[in-house]
Amino acid sequence: MNIFRLAGDMTHLISVLVLLLKIYATKSCSGISLKTQELYAIVFVTRYLDLFTDFISLYNTVMKLVFIGSSLAIVWCMRYHRVVRRSYDRELDTFRYWILLGVSFILALVLHEKFTLQEVFWAFSIYLEAVAILPQLVLLQRSGNVDNLAGQYVFFLGAYRAFYILNWIYRYLTEQRFTRWISCVSGLVQTALYADFFYYYFISWKNNAKLQLPA
């Protein structure tokens, strides 16, 4: 564990807490893409298949349970909670995410570390996470005005993978046999997808204005 990875995990945790706060405090999920939440639930379930077979540390196990539990809870809330579900922007959240699932799965069948069920699903979850934010970014652009909590959620979600890139650089420099190209390349793509969001987020913060994404 290094400071970059810890910072990344904490930032990721903050993004989940911000989203839970938004949903429970405002009883609304306006501006949040259910499709991105469902993709993230799939990412965590397929990545943590080793949850009960490999014990790495208490921290690792607890965080896995938190991410799986929170992502499923958010999907449940947005689908079935009688108050929250009413504020879901159904007509704006129309990204055809089956494409993302299909491409990620085919890529995982071709590019993986070992051809085992766990490894193929792990690679699938890494590729899927890189593109899982797309429905959310499209929804933010379509809904124009971005409320603070939704903007902060996406900001922290993007920042966490940027910390992980620093973690991979650090591990590459300090550990002889650290080669994890699947995560690194995928993480770079993932962070790059946030680039324009970060730019407009910074502009809105600098001008102390509402976050406006160009349609």
């Binding site: 990875r5 995990d9 990721h12 080793d50 490999d54 790495i56 690792n60 965080m63 896995k64 991410f67 570390e113 070992k114 085992t116 766990q118 490894e119 792990w122 992980y164 973690n167 650290f178 994890r180 995560s183």
Partner: peptide, 10 residues
């Protein structure tokens, strides 16, 4: 036990 293919990250 060594974690298969080093998945010690979240």
């Amino acid at each position: 036990d060594t974690v298969p293919s080093g998945h010690d990250e979240l």
